[in-house]
Design a protein around this nucleic acid. Structure first.
Lengths: 201, 201
DNA sequence: CCTACCGATCGGTAGG
DNA sequence: CCTACCGATCGGTAGG
C-alpha cells in the first residue's frame, strides 16, 4: 500500500505543515505568525491561504499529522510478552522509544488544550478509537485471572496517564530536584503501576 | 502574623494580577493583550507599567500567586491516617478538593511550560522545596516496613504525577470515550497506586 | 502564487 | 520634588 507519489500541491501543503509544526511547538500558537510559517516554508504569505482557510486550519493539520498517536498506537499494538508483566514492560519500553522520538509531543497537546480547549480532539478520538478498543480487549484477555478487578478501560487509561505523569513531573522537577527524584524514575513508576494492577498470588 | 493591611499600591497591583490570571487561563498568554488586562482591572494601559516591567513580568506574578502549590501543600501537610493506606487516601481526597477549587491550575502550568519553557519554575521550586522535603520524610517514616522498596522521592513524584495522569487523560478522553473509561476512574487510579506501593503481606 | 495592501490591534512609552 | 496615573500616540505587526 505505497501512497501515490504526492502531487506538487500536496508537497507544498506538507512543507507548510512541517514548518508550522516546528514553529508552533517552539513558540506556541499565538506566538507564531503566518509570516514566519510562510518564510520557513519558502512561500509568500498570501500563498498559505491557497492551502488553508487560516491559521487555525494550519494548526488542525499540524495536530492531525503530528499527533503522537501515530507512533504510540503501533508501539502498543506491537508489544509482546508471555505474561502480563512482560507485556506491560515491553509496552512501556516501546512507549518511551516512541515518545522519545517525538520530544515535541507534549507541547503539541498543551497547545491543543490551552489555545483550542481540545476542539480538535473529538475528531482525532473517533479516528483512533477502533484500534484503542482492540488494544483494550487484547490486554484484558491476556490478563484474565492475573489482573486485579479493575475495568480494562481504566487499565489502559492509567497506563497512558503514566507517561503524562512521568514526563510532566520531569519537566517540573527537572534539574531543580535532588537526583533521587529522577534516578530510574520511569522504571520505578512502571513498577508501581505493574504491582498496582497485578493480583497478589 | 497578620499581614499589614495592603497599601493602595499593593491593592492595585493585586487587581492587575487577578485580572491577568483570569484572562491568561482563558485565552492563553499571547492571546491576551495588555489592553485587556488594563480594561479588566479598571486601569489605563499605561498604568500597568507603573506596577510591572512588562507583560512577562505580569505573568511571573500571576504564576507565583496562583500556582496550585498554595492549595496543594497545605492539603498534603494536613493529610492524616493511622496507616499508609489511610494517609494516602486522605491525601488523595484532599488533593482532589484542593485542585477542584482551582479548575484553572492545569492551564496555568501549561502556559508556563509552552510559552516560557518553565523559566519561572526554578524560583518557585526553591520556595516550595523545604515543605516538600518535610512531606517526603513524614511519609517515609509512617511507611517503614509497610512500603515496597521504592525511594521516598519516587513515591511523592508518582503521587503528584497521579493527578496529572488523571486530569489530562480526563481532558483527552472526556466526553468522547465510553463511560467505562470515566466511571470511578480516580478511585481506581488511586487504588492502583496504593497497591503499587504497599508491600504484599 | 505573489505584491500590495486593509482595518485593527499589538506591547510599550511619550510629555505633562 | 515625588508618586501615581492620565490621554494620546509611538513604531511595527497581526490575520486576511
Amino acid at each position: 500500500m505505497c501512497p501515490d507519489s504526492p502531487t506538487r500541491l500536496e508537497r507544498k501543503r506538507s512543507r507548510i505543515v512541517q514548518a508550522a509544526h516546528q514553529l508552533f511547538v517552539k513558540q506556541g500558537y499565538h506566538g507564531t505568525s503566518m509570516r514566519q510559517i510562510a518564510h520557513k516554508s519558502g512561500m509568500a504569505l498570501g500563498s498559505l491561504y491557497n492551502h488553508f482557510d487560516g491559521k487555525e486550519d494550519v494548526f488542525h493539520a499540524v495536530f492531525m499529522q503530528y499527533h503522537p498517536y501515530h507512533e504510540v498506537m503501533p508501539a502498543l499494538m506491537n508489544a509482546r510478552g508471555g505474561t502480563v508483566e512482560e507485556l506491560v514492560r515491553d509496552a512501556a519500553n516501546r512507549m518511551v522509544t516512541a515518545l522519545g522520538s517525538r520530544p515535541d509531543w507534549l507541547n503539541l497537546m498543551f497547545i491543543e488544550i490551552v489555545e483550542f480547549k481540545s476542539a480538535h480532539t473529538s475528531q482525532l478520538f473517533n479516528q483512533i478509537f477502533p484500534d484503542g478498543l482492540q488494544i483494550v480487549q487484547d490486554f484484558s484477555h491476556l490478563g484474565e485471572g492475573k489482573l486485579r478487578d479493575v475495568p480494562p478501560a481504566i487499565l489502559v487509561r492509567s497506563f497512558l496517564g503514566l507517561f503524562f505523569s512521568y514526563y510532566i513531573t520531569e519537566i517540573i522537577l527537572g534539574n531543580n530536584a535532588p537526583p533521587e527524584f529522577n534516578t530510574n524514575a520511569l522504571d520505578y513508576m512502571v513498577d508501581i503501576y505493574l504491582h498496582g494492577i497485578l493480583e497478589r498470588e
